[in-house]
């Protein structure tokens, strides 16, 4: 039991936190801009490299430098929206989807050019795990990631339900034409969507980079699981996406636990397929997700 919590449940919740923070942005972009943003994982990568670079200059704990990574990801997202996505806004959204594939490659190749394709570490050395009640051993990063994600989820919920900008975002996601009729500035809402989505992606990217290493494919490799989480939570339902992220994270990690007999239920090398399979199954059987999201 203790072993299960220490080696499976806590890492699963950490992975879930990463997916959750990425999936929120995907869900919000899907809801407000109405397209599947295939460069979202690479936005995470950009954020992680931002923090990596900041750590070189200011050697403090990487989590304290998240604002640098977030700022870089936000700048990248706003620039890409301005120059690549906005000119396509009046066309069928599929053109924007294709464009976002290209943007994903632009981000990745820039990361490879500027920071090389090597695996790089955010934190050097080993931090001893936190020991709770003498038995639970939790890596500091895991505790931080899970706690920070929950704080962000609460803050985001309050922002979306209480603030004028948050309600405008939900209104545009709900009925874009009516939002225009009500005089809401859609472009401003879109800019805010990118700011929030990119900032959360950067945080997810830093978590992922600290958990393993920072490399150019960091975000891309996590992206499909994040799509699965966003769909699971229901498109346009940010809180659903957070829940979806944790569910997918749990499903992927726990599928390798030895539930039956001594062997893992699923070979760890097929772990990532679990997320894909959930996504494909959802698309087929319940595309509106568990929490009654919207269909495009």
């Amino acid at each position: 039991m203790i072993e299960f919590i220490n080696y499976y449940l806590i890492p699963a919740l950490t992975l879930g936190s990463i997916y959750a923070l990425g999936a929120v942005g995907i869900s919000m972009i899907f809801g407000i801009l109405r397209f599947a943003h295939f460069a979202h994982g690479d936005l995470m990568t950009v954020g992680a490299y931002g923090v990596l670079t900041a750590v070189w200059f200011v050697p403090v704990h990487p989590l304290l430098l998240i604002p640098v990574g977030a700022a870089l990801a936000i700048a990248a997202a706003l620039a890409v929206d301005r120059f690549f996505y906005r000119p396509l806004r009046q066309l069928a959204t599929i053109y924007t989807v294709i464009s976002s594939f290209g943007v994903a490659l632009i981000f990745r190749s820039l990361a490879q050019l500027l920071w090389s394709s090597d695996n790089q570490v955010l934190v050097k050395g080993v931090t001893p795990p936190l020991v709770l009640f003498g038995t639970f051993r939790i890596a500091a990063l895991h505790a931080e990631a899970i706690a920070l994600t929950l704080v962000i989820a609460v803050a985001l919920h309050l922002f979306l339900t209480r603030s004028k900008t948050g309600r405008s975002m939900r209104a545009v996601s709900d009925e874009p034409e009516l939002a225009a009729v009500a005089g809401i500035d859609t472009e401003k809402v879109i800019r805010w969507t990118w700011v929030i989505a990119a900032a959360l992606a950067a945080i997810a990217g830093v978590f992922a980079g600290m958990d393993t290493t920072v490399h150019p494919n960091l975000g891309w490799n996590l992206q499909l699981a994040m799509f699965a989480a966003a769909i699971l939570g229901g498109i346009g339902k940010p809180m659903g996406a957070i829940a979806g992220g944790f569910i997918i994270g749990l499903a992927e990690e726990l599928s390798t636990y030895n539930w039956v007999g001594d062997n893992p239920l699923i070979s760890p090398s097929y772990k990532t397929a679990v997320g894909f399979l959930i996504m494909v199954a959802l698309l087929i059987f319940r595309p509106q997700g568990l929490f009654r999201g919207r269909l495009l």
């Binding site: 599947a36 894909f276 087929i284």
Partner: peptide, 20 residues
């Protein structure tokens, strides 16, 4: 299983299956 899906979803499903 996927051909009924709208374009964005078909993109996700097909990329997912290809990766599998």
């Amino acid at each position: 299983i996927c051909v009924r899906l709208k374009s964005d979803y078909l993109a996700m499903a097909s990329i997912g299956i290809a990766e599998i």
